[in-house]
């Protein structure tokens, strides 16, 4: 397992008496789509939240691209190139789709108060660039026709796509996707997945938490199974489908 971009070492996170993540260790190889599967409550989403800085782990370490990131605030982790989408879309409701995208990413020129006093022209330039960038991303994911719609008016599936589009705006090297296709109609699903695969070609690494086994088995390069806060098994799709322990705990006979 050379070339790990993300590594969890014996991560523990408890909520009250429940140890949601209980000594979980795993590695994600650079440039892969790695699926993280397992029954509800296995700790998948919690692990992603820890990696993205929303929670600090009770114990253990997270390493991203050679540096330790556990406990850092989310905005610094995003700046390092690791971004997570939310399982339940967290769109900025009273802002437009385009604004949702423009707001994503490390601080742009003009988002610091001191910039506003000094360099209006540079801000204008940076803004123009940001708009073009956001429009390009919207075209890629197929939301360009909704450019100036309020995000609250989008359908559930469109909001999921917006989540991915916002993540793309942060120039990530790695994206953690928490159930990106659940609730998205099949056509859009295909589009979304082809966007993900295209990005993988250009070097972006993905972790995919997903319950849709068709998607997982056909699209993921590597599958990690979690159960009760730990990794239970990992391997290629065929190996996982043949794994007795995985079938018992999750896939079912």
């Amino acid at each position: 397992m050379n070339g790990a971009i993300l590594e969890a070492r014996a991560v523990v996170k408890a909520f009250g008496g429940i140890r949601a993540v209980d000594g979980c260790s795993l590695q994600v190889r650079r440039g892969t789509i790695t699926a993280l599967i397992g029954p509800n409550g296995a700790g998948k989403s919690t692990l992603l939240s820890i990696a993205s800085g929303l929670y600090a782990p009770d114990a253990g370490e997270i390493w991203f691209d050679g540096s330790r990131i556990d406990g850092l605030p989310p905005h610094l982790i995003v700046a390092a190139g690791l971004v997570k989408t939310f399982q339940i879309p967290r769109e900025l409701r009273n802002m437009t789709v385009l604004e949702n995208l423009m707001v994503a990413g490390p601080p742009r020129t003009g988002e610091r108060l001191r910039d506003l006093l000094l360099r209006p022209r540079e801000i204008r330039k940076a803004e123009d660039a940001a708009i073009r960038r956001a429009e390009a991303v919207l075209r890629t994911v197929g939301l360009i026709h909704l450019r100036d719609e309020y995000a609250r008016n989008l359908s559930g599936g469109q909001k999921k796509i917006l989540e991915l589009a916002r993540a793309l705006m942060t120039d990530p090297r790695m994206i953690l996707l928490d159930e990106p296709v659940a609730g998205v109609n099949p056509t859009m699903q295909k589009g979304l997945l082809s966007v993900i695969e295209k990005l993988r070609e250009s070097g972006t690494t993905f972790v995919l938490v997903e319950h849709d086994m068709d998607v997982v088995m056909t699209r993921a390069d590597w599958i990690i199974v979690m159960h009760q806060g730990r990794t239970l098994a990992e391997g290629l799709a065929a190996e996982i489908q043949a794994n007795r322990a995985v079938i018992d705990s999750y896939l079912g006979g």
Binding site: H75, V78, F86, R90, E91, L92, E111, T170
Partner: peptide
Amino acid sequence: RAVREDEEAAEALGKN
């Protein structure tokens, strides 16, 4: 405004 709409999301998108 992003912070007003959803602080956690704004944080996860890279805002301090």
